[in-house]
Structure formats: structure tokens, C-alpha cells
Amino acid sequence: MSRRGVVCVVVGAVVFGFAGGDGVAGGHAKAWADGTPVVWSEDEMPELPLDRYEFGATDQKTYDRMGSATQLLTQRCMVRHGFADFPRDPKFPGMATAYTSAMVAVSTGPVGPWDLGKASRWGYGWDPAKKFRAPEPAGREMTTEESAVYYGDRQSERSGCSGEAYTRIERGVRDRERMWTYVSRRTEAVRKQADRDPTMRRAYKAWADCVVDKGFKRYADPVQAFGDKAWRRGQDGNTTRGKRELGTAVADIACKRAHNTGGVWWTVARRLQRHELALHRAEFEAVRTDGDRLLANVRAVLETT
């Protein structure tokens, strides 16, 4: 069976209508005969059981609303302390003249990158002409006196006006550490289980054989290919984008498509997450309850503006 233009059988299922090209919408069948989804992009990865318990602040829009609420509460606290013109979004002392560059977190999903067009141009990196710069606060720089009230005694993370704001936002939350970290920790634990699962190991082997057949190095899985030190990432996290890197990245994605590595990963992860949820449903429900309380607090604060 050819390795191009078809989805190869990994767990005894067949896909019809597989098509080439960079497009994903309508370019291939949506599921194998056994229900395994065909995944060519991150957007095509169906929801997993633990996703519904992930705290909403992982969504950028929700995170921004939380930031707005805490800024508003902090500003009101500063005004009460006599700083009538304190900005809602202040610069920190010394920040006004400092150049702030963003540190890029270089990471990838459970089966690596998906975009074939980007891989052919930038490999495992990105366009070097694209500059990354951290967003700067819109308000003026706070004074040293204001900073002392803003942060408080610095002996506690809930000190000063900033601490007061966070305490208000988290009112009614039973376990803030669990709310912020529990689901991500359990999801990561399941991800590691999935990598050791026999079905997933067979899928990774099929992918690796495909990459080798295309003339490139053997890797244990796509994440290892993404993180190969041979790509010589700089301080900004970008790679050198050499010929071999570009070829490997393209082969990586083409082979994931040919063997539906993402769809197999999802099927394994769903099975393991369902088991995890059955074992710890009370903890997951408690996390969701705390998250709902916090988001309700955010809405209540923003409604007062």
C-alpha cells in the first residue's frame, strides 16, 4: 500500500476520500470505520473528556476579563489610599524606559505541529522577520510610594492593593491551588500514559517508519522531532531552518496525515481520560465549581464599571 494519498491502517480501520494538498476542510474523510477521527489540524481535534473541566482562564478572552477585573479592583483600592489619579493599567517602576521583549515559550501539542505550509517554509520555527514584543501597560509608571501600597509588605502574595484585588476575585473559592493546577496536572499524567500505551506506540512506530522512508532521522515520536537539538534554537526559541530541518518538518506532518497519528492519539487519550474521570470525578467537579465561582466574581466586578 502506498504511503502517499491514503490513510494507512493502524488499528484495523479504513478511510475513504483521503485527498492531498494543504487544505483540511473537506479534504479527507472525517472518521475511520471504527470511529477514530481523522485529524489534520489542531482545529479538527475533537473535545476530550477532561477539556470541559479545564478552568476557563485558559481561554484568552476569559483571562483578559479576569485581568480587567483585578485592575479595576486594584485601582479602586489605590484611590482609597489617596492616589486619586492612579491608572488602571500602570507601568511598574523603571519600566517606562526599559525595553521589554517577550520570551517565546517553545512548545507543541501532543503530536507536534500540523501546518504543512508553515513547515515547508519555517520548519520547526517561524518567520524570523516576525518580531515578538511583550505588550506594555497603557497607563503611566507608578511612583515608588504608590508601589509600596500596590504591593504591600511583600511578605505575602495577597498583600497590598494587588493582593486585595485577587482575594476579592477568588472569594468563595475552596481550593485555589487545585482550581489552577489540578486538571492540567491530571491531563499531563494521562498524556504520559498515552505515550506508553501499546496502541500509541504502534502508531508512533508507523509514523517513524514513514519519516525514515522519506530519508530522515528516526524519532520516537513527533514531539522528539520537534525538539531535536540539531535545529539549534536561539535565545528567542527560533530555529535555523536549514534544509534538513525543513525536510524533516514536512515529512513529519505528511506522515502524521498518512497514518492519522493525531486521530489515534485522540482515541487513546479519550479512553484514558474517561478512566481518569471515573476515578476522580469528585475532584474534577470541585475544580469546575471553584472556577465557576471565580468567573461569577469577575462578572460581578465588571458589571459595576
Rank of each mutant, 00 (worst) to 15 (best):
D51R: 08
E303N: 08
Y63W: 07
V79C: 00
A282M: 11
V149K: 07
K30T: 15
L302Y: 06
P93M: 03
G139W: 04
A189T: 15
T62C: 10
G67E: 12
G21H: 09
F216A: 11
H81M: 03
G17A: 07
P87T: 01
V190D: 07
G227Y: 13
K192Y: 08
V250R: 06
D197Y: 02
G17H: 02
R80F: 01
Q193N: 09
T199C: 07
G35Y: 05
R274L: 14
R133D: 06
L246T: 04
V190L: 12
R233M: 12
T304D: 06
G26M: 03
G56C: 09
V211D: 03
G112W: 09
F86L: 06
R4I: 05
K91P: 00
D153K: 11
S68P: 04
P198G: 05
D85A: 14
S107V: 05
K61Q: 06
R202Q: 09
F216K: 07
K192P: 13
G152D: 09
D197K: 02
A96D: 13
S147Y: 03
D197R: 02
R270I: 04
P37Q: 02
C255V: 00
D22Y: 07
G215L: 10
K130L: 09
H280R: 12
E303S: 09
S101G: 15
Y151V: 07
G109T: 09
F284A: 09
S101K: 15
F83D: 10
R80D: 04
H275N: 12
I253H: 00
K229A: 14
M78D: 06
V287K: 13
E245L: 03
G109Y: 05
Q75M: 14
G21D: 14
T199R: 15
R288P: 13
Q224C: 04
G21L: 11
W32E: 06
L272Q: 01
R270K: 13
L277P: 10
Y53W: 10
R52F: 04
C77T: 00
A282V: 14
A148T: 03
S68Y: 04
A220I: 02
S159V: 00
Q75D: 10
P90G: 04
V11W: 08
R281H: 06
G215K: 05
A29S: 07
V149S: 03
A258Y: 02
D43Y: 09
G82S: 00
K243H: 11
D290C: 12
C77G: 00
Y124D: 13
